[in-house]
Design a protein around this nucleic acid. Sequence first.
DNA 1: TCTATTGACGTTATATTATAACATCTCTAG
DNA 2: CTAGAGATGTTATAATATAACGTCAATAGA
Lengths: 164, 164
Amino acid sequence: MDTKGFAKHDHRACIVDMIAVAEAYSAANKVQFTPVRRRVLELLLEDHKALGAYDVLERLVKEGYGSQPPVAYRALDFLVKHGFAHKIERLNAYIACAHPQKIHAPAFMICRQCKAIAETMTTPTKGPFNQAAEEAGFQIERTVFEAEGLCPKCVSGGAPREVS
Amino acid sequence: MDTKGFAKHDHRACIVDMIAVAEAYSAANKVQFTPVRRRVLELLLEDHKALGAYDVLERLVKEGYGSQPPVAYRALDFLVKHGFAHKIERLNAYIACAHPQKIHAPAFMICRQCKAIAETMTTPTKGPFNQAAEEAGFQIERTVFEAEGLCPKCVSGGAPREVS
DNA sequence: TCTATTGACGTTATATTATAACATCTCTAG
DNA sequence: CTAGAGATGTTATAATATAACGTCAATAGA
């Protein structure tokens, strides 16, 4: 696994780069990187937190885009479909992809305390499921890997232990 | 991973055993394995498919239990909390645990065609996340591992390839 | 150039999943 | 015999998601 982790990074560059990659990809693949879609990607990149569809919608409404759920869901679906965002199933929320346009099976570490999320990537052919799947004759098409717990900061900050 | 897989099994025994285990556990841990809870576990075991909370509720209503969502959710929460069921995040649905009372990080293979689900277990200390988590200093408390694809039967039955 | 198709976006309406908050009952610990 | 805990039931509402339809703009073929 190639860990991106919870470390800081050059955030301005990160946004600019992602948008550029998305534009190039869209041109190359003849799909439309429209204003809503771009804006939603920017929102997701803004602080690398997972946003719910309705959080996104709220922002879009304020900025004069359509006001109904499908507007947000469709933009998010586009981003997910083309690999610029992932859905965090555990949170019913969406997050920008940290490894755009690389073929990968994304995996997430979700801090229950501060809500930070780190994406790490597993290789699709050597992921944790592959042996079991092969033995079973199961043909994997998509995977969801999500770990919940405490990020480094919250561990050392003495977050309360999980209650049962 | 210890694959349970998509194979057939002695289903009658499977139900009887699980209920017995749940009873023993509940007695030992001084929690109440009440009629609703038992019934919901039976429902989940009935055909090893994942059931939504409202599917469960529908059955409960017919059988004279309470008719409101919390009735189902509370029973399901109990079963999940004590390790007799898991939630499949991808499906917002619940399934009986295949390895009750063993400490494990469950992983699922979900057939998108026939909806069959197999649970395999990973060891919590050697699971796919552990190296990445350790490097990152992340303290794992819970994991979600779900693979979607085609089960052996549906692969050989010539299920249509996934569409993008 | 015209026109048929496609894809995007907007809407209304509704479906699906989940929880908050409160009343009642039963069991048990004191 | 009574206080508290925990289980069940209720009403009400919140949060998440999609179906279905109209319009418009870009595009590809005739």
